[in-house]
């Protein structure tokens, strides 16, 4: 199968990165790890800003919200301010629901033909696991602030405590790690197994999932199977944050792999489909207010066009109009 090649390739790519990281770790990485984090983070930030500015530079010539509920019209008709926002509050609410709750994906259904007719079943798994994956990722990222703040922010400590509420093992298994991997597993399997989704999947689709999975897996391995000296890790992280980078002391191979995957992930993010992180905020069908008829929207490049004027029209049809008894401008 042609589409399986992409899966294979992405596995190979991940493996290659892991090996490279291992090699870099052996070959006395310190120098490397003084530049790499800044390079990756710089690419991430600059790339992200660049992409957003690039989108922003293109105007939104027309107001094209996709309306998914009753619009605001006559006062006695109950409108749906969230799915069909009539004002900025509604639009903000709609975006918030989209970003935090994956509102549109919540609508998802599954179509199949049964007994010669299409039926539409509820299909919330993608929504559920998608939300679980993204939410877990957010928690994981926030938790890592413990390596970047000194003293550790109380909120971060609280979040970690909540996340490790179930005392599974020592150190306690973070639930977000488990749910993150579960979400990733669902998304990957879905992509690799469902024929339709596999058909549309590109190399980058698998690679993105596997890269994040690699980050999560190396992180989990470090926490539970190949412990590292957290003091040294934090010293390294704080070194970066204070622009006084120090090489990780006694860094393990897994740590190098973890870092390498993270650097590649954040450096690649702005230039990949993962940029949907920023893009969702800009989507005109979602972030616009449906007030087209009550407030004029301006198109900055409203190019003049050639039209067929009434004069030209009457000139052509004047006789016929007169014959039909229709009024004309010019007798």
């Amino acid at each position: 199968m042609k589409q399986s090649v992409n899966i294979l390739l992405s596995f190979i790519a991940i493996l290659a990165i892991a090996l490279a990281a291992a090699a870099a770790g052996r070959a006395d990485a310190p120098g490397w790890f003084r530049i790499l984090p800044y390079a990756a983070f710089g690419l991430f930030l600059a790339g992200f800003v660049y992409r957003v500015i690039r989108w922003a530079k293109a105007p939104v010539p027309f107001r094209i919200p996709a309306t998914c509920g009753q619009g605001k019209s006559l006062p006695w008709i109950k409108s749906n301010p969230l799915d069909n926002p009539a004002g900025p509050l509604g639009a903000i609410g709609r975006m918030a629901a989209e970003i935090f709750l994956f509102r549109s994906l919540f609508r998802n259904s599954q179509t199949e033909i049964v007994d010669g007719r299409p039926v539409y079943g509820s299909a919330k798994w993608l929504w559920f696991f998608g939300l679980m994956f993204h939410g877990s990722l957010l928690v994981v990222v926030l938790r890592h602030l413990r390596f970047f703040t000194e003293p550790v922010l109380p909120a971060v400590t609280g979040l970690s405590a909540l996340d490790g509420f179930l005392e599974i093992g020592v150190p306690a298994l973070y639930l977000s790690d488990a749910t993150l991997l579960a979400g990733l597993a669902f998304l990957f399997l879905r992509r690799a197994v469902l024929p339709q989704v596999r058909y549309i999947s590109l190399f980058a689709d698998y690679f993105a999932l596997l890269l994040i999975a690699a980050v999560a897996a190396t992180g989990l391995l470090m926490r539970h199977f190949f412990p590292v000296d957290l003091n040294a890790v934090k010293t390294m992280a704080m070194g970066w944050a204070t622009f006084a980078p120090v090489a990780p002391k006694d860094g393990s191979v897994i740590l190098y792999m973890h870092l390498c995957f993270v650097f590649i992930l954040i450096a690649w993010l702005p230039f990949s489909k993962l940029m949907h992180l920023g893009g969702i905020f800009m989507s005109p069908t979602r972030n616009m207010i449906n007030n087209n008829r009550s407030l004029r929207h301006i198109n900055p490049w409203n190019t003049p066009v050639k039209v067929h004027t009434y004069k030209e029209y009457e000139d052509e049809f004047r006789d016929k109009m007169k014959a039909a008894g229709l009024p004309v401008e010019k007798e």
């Binding site: 599974i168 020592v170 199977f225 190949f226 590292v228 191979v253």
Partner: peptide, 14 residues
């Protein structure tokens, strides 16, 4: 080879 010992692939909690 702290980190490469396969024997410890069994988590203590398992």
């Amino acid at each position: 080879l702290t980190m490469m010992t396969p024997a410890i692939f069994v988590p203590a909690w398992a």
